[in-house]
C-alpha cells in the first residue's frame, strides 16, 4: 500500500460507504482541510455539517444527529476534540450512548513546533477513562481502512486517533487480516514483547529488526485497540518473554503503558517498561525529531530493550 496519511484513509473509506448510505454524516470544526475531509464535503454536501471553530458544538450536534438515526463522524484535531469537548464526549456521546465516532486527527505530537496547545499527549488517558468509550489508534493506512469499515457496522461510541503525516505502511495488502478488537502479532520473539499503538508500531517493528541482528528476539504487538484492550494477547505475550516494553505517542499516565502494566501485574508479573512522551511540554520539532529525542524510534526502543534485559545497564 502506498504511503498515505491515516486520516486520508478514513475519509476515503467513509466516502465509499457514504455513496451507498445517506445516513453517514461527517462533521468538521473548520477542520475539513487539516482532517483531509474536503473531498467528502465536496462530494457529499448533503451529508456534511460544518460547525465552525466550536468543538463542543461539533460533538453535541453529532450526538443529536446520531439520536435521529445518523452515523456521525466528528472530525477535529485530537488536542481539541479530547480536551475542549471532553464533557460532550462523556455526556452526549458515551453516557447517552449515541452512534458517534470521534475522529481525532493530527494526534500526539503531529503538530510539531506548534506547542503544547496543539499536542494531544493526554487523549488516550482521557478518552479511555470514560465508560462506554472505545479508543483506537490504528497503525497504518490499511488497518485504518479496515477499522473504519468495522466501526461502520456498529452503533456504539468510539474515539479514533490518527496522526497528521503519511504513515509508514506496516502491513501489505493481502497479507493482513484485520480482526476487530484483537491485537495483531506482527513478529514473534522470546526475549521481549514490544506492545505499541499508532505510529509507534512502525518504530517497534524497526527496533525488533535491530535487535534481531543482536540475537534478541522481540515480539511486536500492534495494539491498535487500546480500549477494549486485547488482554489475552497481552497475557500470552507476557507469558512468553522476559520483559514487556510498551511504546506510545502519549504521556506517561493512563495510556497504553498503564493499561498493559495493569494486566501484566495482575496476571503474569514480568518487568514492564513504558516508553512514552514525558510529563512535560514536548520539545519543539518534527515528529521524527521528537520521537528520536525521547527514544521513541527504532534505535531508542532497541536501547531501552537492551537495558531492561540487562538490569546492570551494560550493552547486550
Amino acid at each position: 500500500m502506498e504511503k498515505t496519511a491515516n486520516k486520508q484513509m478514513i475519509c476515503r473509506t467513509l466516502m465509499e460507504a457514504a455513496r451507498e448510505d445517506r445516513n453517514i454524516v461527517a462533521l468538521c470544526s473548520d477542520s475539513r482541510g487539516s482532517g483531509s475531509f474536503a473531498p467528502f464535503a465536496k462530494d457529499f454536501p448533503e451529508q456534511f455539517v460544518e460547525t465552525g471553530i466550536a468543538e463542543q458544538n461539533l460533538v453535541s450536534i453529532a450526538a443529536g444527529l446520531a439520536r435521529c438515526g445518523k452515523k456521525a463522524y466528528a472530525v477535529s484535531p485530537a488536542c481539541f476534540l479530547s480536551a475542549r469537548s471532553y464533557e460532550q464526549c462523556k455526556v452526549d456521546v458515551a453516557y447517552s450512548n449515541t452512534n458517534v465516532k470521534l475522529i481525532g486527527i493530527s494526534g500526539g505530537v503531529s503538530y510539531g513546533a506548534l506547542g503544547m496547545s496543539h499536542h494531544s499527549a493526554q487523549d488516550i488517558a482521557a478518552m479511555s477513562a470514560i465508560p462506554n468509550m472505545r479508543v483506537y489508534l490504528p497503525s497504518d493506512p490499511l488497518q485504518t481502512a479496515e477499522l473504519v469499515k468495522a466501526l461502520l457496522k456498529d452503533e456504539k461510541p468510539a474515539y479514533i486517533r490518527v496522526g497528521r503525516n503519511a504513515a509508514e505502511p506496516v502491513y501489505q495488502e493481502g497479507e493482513y487480516s484485520f480482526v476487530m478488537d484483537k491485537a495483531s502479532v506482527m513478529r514473534d520473539g522470546r526475549d521481549v514483547a514490544l506492545i505499541a499503538c499508532g505510529e509507534m508500531v512502525a518504530a517497534a517493528k524497526a527496533a525488533a529488526e535491530i535487535l534481531e541482528k543482536e540475537g534478541i528476539g522481540a515480539q511486536v504487538l500492534d495494539m491498535y485497540c487500546v480500549k477494549p484492550l486485547d488482554e489475552e494477547a497481552v497475557i500470552r505475550a507476557a507469558s512468553q518473554v522476559r520483559a514487556v516494553v510498551t511504546v506510545e505517542e502519549h504521556g506517561p499516565f493512563g495510556g497504553l503503558g498503564s493499561m498493559v502494566s495493569q494486566v501484566v501485574a495482575r496476571t503474569w508479573p514480568k518487568p514492564v517498561v513504558n516508553l512514552t512522551l514525558p510529563d512535560a511540554p514536548v520539545i519543539a520539532g518534527t515528529s521524527a525529531e521528537v520521537f528520536a529525542y525521547y527514544g521513541l524510534d527504532g534505535a531508542g526502543i532497541a536501547e531501552a530493550v537492551r537495558k531492561i534485559l540487562r538490569p546492570d545497564g551494560k550493552e547486550a
Binding site: 453535541s60 450526538a63 443529536g64 439520536r67 452526549d92 447517552s96
Partner: peptide
C-alpha cells in the same frame, strides 16, 4: 431521548436533531 444534567448541552444536541430532520 438524551441524558443531561450538565448544563449547556441540550441546545447543541437539539441543533443536531433538527438538522437531521
Amino acid at each position: 431521548e438524551m441524558n443531561s444534567g450538565s448544563l449547556g448541552h441540550g441546545l447543541p444536541v437539539c441543533v443536531g436533531m433538527a438538522k437531521a430532520g
